[in-house]
Amino acid sequence: MVIRGNSRGNGSQLARYLTTQGDNEAIHLLEVDGNTHATAKQLHDTLLSMSLMAELTKSAKGLYHAQINPAYGEDKAMTDTNWQQAVDILAKELGFGGQRRAIVLHEKKGRTHAHVVWERYDYQTGKIIDTPFNYLAHDRARQAMERVFTQQQTPVKNNRQPELKEQLTEYWNNTVTATEFIKAVEQAGYLLAAGIAKRPFMVVDDHGRSFDLVRQLKGINTKAVRERLGNIGLMPEKKAIAQIRERQQAHAKDKATSSPQKPKNRDLSVLAHEFTNNKKSMLAGEKKKETIKEYTETRETIIQKQEQTPTGTVADKKMAATKDFAENKTQTLSREDRKQALINDMRQQLRDYQRPQSRDQGISIGE
């Protein structure tokens, strides 16, 4: 499907164009400002009044004229209701919902397309409705129409098309029979298909996009292709596209199954949290070990002082050792900014050191 459109003026000239037979095989006034049985004069008067409303503003273009062109063959399935629905879709994307409009169907060379004209003047705001980036609105409407009416998706620009042309031309020149050519094309991941009307031979690439085969063959005309492939029964274009897409889905499924699963974000956060906790525990453990080492060295110093004391009873020695230990401990805590708990009982601490207990924060040396 192709949609084109732009702002314009001169409603009288546009009305004459839409109602002139010319190359058209048939003209059908589908709707004129809500009237489904309008005449050519009513169309003329309506478009003239629409364009004249622009004189209330600074704009000279009071109309928006668009064309809706379905692909060959798909226009036959469009009913009057479908055409009106298509116009509604385009109006929504362009911002013309609720505006006065006229719909005229032209049949030319066996294919029907629609002309639609909207009034740009907004009676509520007293301003002209602007349509910036209208080509993007056309594309959004085209996608919606193809989805609603289950029509073939219009191929997007393919940056690999030059490569496709080179490959297909090489396959054509290096083969003689239709079977050889078809086999070479299929081995490259493509499929040949039967088109319609002026494009009888199509090629579908590995992304499910279809192209006119003749246009992909450099220096080869339709007659030469017809002579080689004319007697070969090719599958319909839609069936070939469906096969390619099924192949893509199967390949993606196999790839997902065979590829190792990467950790999810949640798993990574859990691992990071556990690593942080473990690191904190290790640091706490190292700090406790340093404290125990310092405690042991202090204890050895006190014992040495006890052994060097020449006089005094055992009780005096114990009291002196306890006093020395407390003084030394206070100095140590001052250096550690009082981060460690006070050690109240030297003998109890020694027993704890001999049977350390493991906890989440490291090794505990006190109750």
Rank of each mutant, 00 (worst) to 15 (best):
N134E: 12
E166N: 11
R199H: 14
Y135T: 02
T179F: 15
N174V: 09
K108P: 00
Q143C: 06
V156T: 07
K183M: 07
Q124C: 05
T112V: 09
F181E: 00
P200Y: 15
M202S: 04
F133E: 03
Y135M: 06
N174H: 15
H106W: 04
E180K: 10
P155Y: 11
V117E: 01
N159E: 13
V204I: 07
K109F: 08
V117K: 06
G195T: 04
T125F: 11
T131W: 14
Q161H: 11
L191D: 01
F201H: 08
Q151Y: 13
A141W: 11
I182N: 06
N174R: 15
F181H: 04
T169N: 09
H113P: 00
Q152I: 08
R111D: 02
T112I: 09
Y135S: 03
Y190Q: 04
A197M: 13
I129F: 13
L105G: 00
D130A: 15
Y135I: 03
T150D: 11
V148M: 12
Q153R: 15
V156Q: 12
A184L: 10
K183Y: 11
R147L: 00
N134C: 11
T169D: 08
I128L: 14
T150A: 12
V117Y: 05
F201I: 02
V185L: 07
V156S: 08
V117I: 06
R147A: 00
T175F: 14
G189W: 14
A144H: 11
G126Y: 14
H113K: 01
M202Y: 10
V148W: 15
R100W: 13
A188I: 06
R100G: 08
L164K: 10
D205I: 04
A144T: 05
N134R: 15
E107P: 00
F181M: 03
Q143W: 11
E107K: 12
T131K: 13
K127N: 07
V185R: 10
D205A: 04
A184D: 05
Q124F: 12
A184V: 05
G126A: 06
T125N: 05
H113F: 01
N173Y: 14
L191G: 01
P200I: 09
R199Q: 12
A193E: 03
E186L: 04
I182V: 04
